[in-house]
Design a binder for these strands. Structure first.
Length: 476
RNA sequence: GUCCCCUUCGUCUAGCGGUCCAGGACAUCGGCCUCUCACGCCGAAAACAGGGGUUCGACUCCCCUAGGGGACGCCA
């Protein structure tokens, strides 16, 4: 049997971190088994679904590298089939018309809660004669759920979970306006799409029980279910925008790499011994539902940052330059067009690439990387941060002025030669290296922290370096 | 309120009855490297929620309590 999984978001919002992980697990599971990963847009909701949200979800999945097989299914397109199924259930006596109004329902729930009873629908129209139907009320259609016994979910992550059937009320299959509800649509579409494994958040656990009942009523075999624990915020509460429930697009903007995101996400709930780093291929090889934990995980930004830093260090220098070039240019939005504010000559980009091996050790996001590389592409006189300006007080300008001479006469502008030259200068003047290196750093980078100063000198080149040093020397 | 699920260092987790005075990673704190900041390396501190069982032996199995989470819509 070929494994077929699906990711079924409702396009009422962005693709957030929890949804992304659900998608990842479904994708990994299908890839591991050489099966298919499908996408279904659950847009049975009236106005709440938007095309923008659909686009955002597709973009998010693309960015994460979770390619789908087959074209996405739009649940709303299956309206006729859903309605037909309800007619069938009705004809078989497995569903019935319910004339209870929303107000009555609310009243019923309040009372049940007050009396300590389950708050579900009490089945008041289940066996009532249709001739009792009040005039002017268009009925909804409810499922005639089994009253006795238990419904058992053999969950691939949680194990066996049982619900007393009495606990599961008669859910609505078709709204009074004739549109199908989620519960019916999911079952119908999962069956029609040939879904073999449903992997989703535990918030769907009770739904699984209801859906199993529906599968039985329809005489269909239910898929396997796997309910994965939710992701909580750093304070243990439900994940909200305050602590990371951002759209995946927001993470891209913050400079996270898809590979890092995948690695971070897969480790939230899944593990393989002591291993922390997994390539796409390794994840696919190793992933299994048996190694998925049952307890909820908290979102940890520090860990994400660390993982991202790791992947940045592993990345190819050229690719990193390409990735940060737009950040370096800055983008001005004019209508639909994004236009670079600054044109950067290729010679300057070459500097960035030259220093990249050093730069990438110091960044945990692409945004940070770009910021740290910015001094390489700015034009003289460069800006100084306050801490750098401070380094250029006192003797510093004078020392830099003196350093200019040996530097100017240097034949070979290489890291090694530059290091030898500056060290010799320090020794000759009885200075600790730091005494000259720090002002030099400020002069060249405008900052008090940067990659090794000799590397910076070498990458900046003779002319630019000398110019920047002269600029700083004349601040006195 | 009813039902369901979960519970190992601050966080993510390893552990599937003895190999555990509990291992890894992030974060934290020391140290080394050192021109700064990083990277890297070395080291430290840090957990089996509590109580009962079962067993020769429980982090591992069962029960209870506590805490946390989820579901209870003519939303998905």
């Amino acid at each position: 049997m070929t494994v077929v999984t699906r990711f079924a978001p409702s396009p009422t919002g962005m693709l957030h971190i929890g949804g992304a992980r659900t998608a990842l697990f479904n994708w990994l599971f299908s890839r591991h088994h050489g099966g298919e990963f499908l996408l279904r847009v659950e847009d049975t909701d009236r106005e709440r679904s938007t095309p923008e949200a659909v686009d955002a979800i597709f973009e998010g999945l693309d960015w994460l590298g979770l390619e789908r097989d087959r074209e996405p299914v739009y649940q709303s397109h299956n309206l006729a089939r859903h309605q037909e199924l309800v007619r069938q259930l009705l004809a078989e006596g497995k569903a019935y018309h319910c004339y209870t109004t929303p107000d009555e329902l609310a009243e019923m729930r309040d009372q049940a809660r007050a009396e300590g009873r389950p708050t579900g629908y009490d089945g008041r129209w289940r066996d009532r004669d249709p001739s009792d139907a009040p005039p002017g009320v268009t009925p909804a259609i409810r499922f005639k759920a089994p009253i006795e016994g238990q419904t058992i979910i053999d969950d691939q992550v949680l194990g066996e979970v049982r619900f007393d059937s009495a606990q599961l009320d008669d859910m609505i299959l078709l709204r009074s306006d004739g549109t199908p509800t989620y519960m019916l649509a999911v079952v119908a579409d999962d069956h029609d799409m040939g879904i073999t494994h449903v992997i989703r958040g535990v918030d769907h656990l009770t739904n699984a029980a209801r859906q199993i009942q529906l599968f039985r009523a329809l005489d269909w075999e239910a898929p396997e279910f796997a309910h994965i624990p939710l992701i909580h915020g750093s304070d243990g509460a439900k994940l909200s925008k305050r602590h990371g429930a951002l759209a995946v697009g927001a993470y891209r903007e913050q400079g996270f790499l898809p590979a890092a995101m995948r690695n971070f996400l897969v480790r939230l709930g899944w593990s393989h011994g002591d291993e922390e780093v997994f390539s796409k291929g390794q994840m696919i090889d190793l992933f299994g539902l048996g190694a998925v934990g049952k307890s909820p995980a908290r979102f940890d930004m520090d860990k994400l940052l660390n993982v991202n830093g790791h992947y940045i260090r592993q990345s190819d220098d050229k690719n990193l330059v390409i990735a940060i070039t737009p950040l370096l240019q800055g983008l001005e939005v004019l209508g639909f067009l994004k236009i670079p504010i600054i044109r950067i000559e290729s010679a300057k980009l070459a500097r960035v690439e030259g220093l990249m091996p050093e730069l990438k050790k110091r960044a945990r996001t692409l945004v940070e990387l770009a910021e740290n590389a910015r001094f390489l592409v700015t034009t003289r006189p460069i800006e100084m941060i306050p801490k750098a300006a401070k380094l250029l007080k006192g003797d510093a300008p004078g020392l830099l002025q003196e350093l200019l001479n040996p530097l100017k006469s240097l034949e070979n502008w290489s890291t090694e030669a530059l290091e030898a030259c500056v060290k010799q200068f320090a020794e000759a003047n009885d200075l600790k290296l730091g005494t000259i290196a720090q002002p030099l750093r400020a002069a060249l980078t405008g900052s008090n922290a940067s990659p090794g100063i000799f590397d910076v000198l070498a990458v900046l080149g003779r002319e630019e370096s000398l110019g920047r040093i002269a600029d700083a020397a004349s601040t006195a």
